[in-house]
Amino acid sequence: ETTVRMLNTWDDRYPGSTVICERYAQLLTEASGGEITVQISGPETIPPLEQLEPTQAGLFQILCTYPGFHTGTSTLLTGLESIRPDPEAFRASGAMDEIRDSYGKLGLHVVSVPLAHGYWIFMNKGLSEQGDLTGRQIRALPPQHPYITAIGGTPVVLPPAEMFSALERGVIDGALFPAAGASGYGFAEVADSYLTTNISSPHVILANQAFWDGLPEDLRTVFDAQAEVLETEIPGVYDRLNAEEAEKLAAAGMQKLELDAATAARLEEGVASGAWTFAQSRDPEAAARLEERVTEAGLLTN
């Protein structure tokens, strides 16, 4: 019997905690016939932005997280915010080899990269007369600022705890945030409309390299096979989650906004260039190779 200590970045408010991290743990246990048991610790054990080091040090063997939380060490995967969540095309592109090479240098083995439909912009003021974000102040993490400026908005940096009261009081006009679970965070109360986007949300499951190298061959096969199961089901799961989210937001009286085709194209360009510019900030060559792979596989077009 093998007990694996997994570190989960999210608390239960984010559905990814359940459908990605806990789900993978369950898949491992089931597929191994109970031989693998996973002990999950949450963000109350290690704060989200500090979780890579303890995994590198072997304190935890598996880390289930979002690449935006360890940009101090690797920015590579944030480039994937620009791609279509298509697991088959992604696997066929050979992108995973580039990702594994890059993280391998950090003492980490990349187990899985589940791709999901990611972000919406929650607004308390509708779109501008031009049909974009001109004159709107939008809270976003700095790597995502190019997305906001691409459609005329002014990006603002605010800590998460202040984002909600700032939206409610009109200090800011909107916030870019993961779609899944948004109503659970309270957006329906502080905003009155939302703008859907095609920005993707890559997640990543990492293993401590020494732990991975020490795993018996048959168990490693279980990890790999279940990673594929997870990656395959995630886009569908998120389609369902986002649809549920849209229903909840509509029930709360929130209006759905959509960009016209020209503005949407501007956003898509902004996301592609912004995501890959930022992705290159830590390991530029690896990012350039990864971009090439996903571009060749046609993953950049929605």
Binding site: I46, P47, L49, E50, E53, P54, A57, L59, P159, A161
Partner: peptide, 22 residues
């Protein structure tokens, strides 16, 4: 609880707290 490797979480946690914008 874990041995010396657990000590490695201290500096990260100290930075995390002391840089919290709130």
């Amino acid at each position: 609880l874990m041995g010396p490797q657990m000590l490695s979480i201290f500096p990260a946690s100290i930075l995390d707290t002391s840089m919290t914008s709130e």
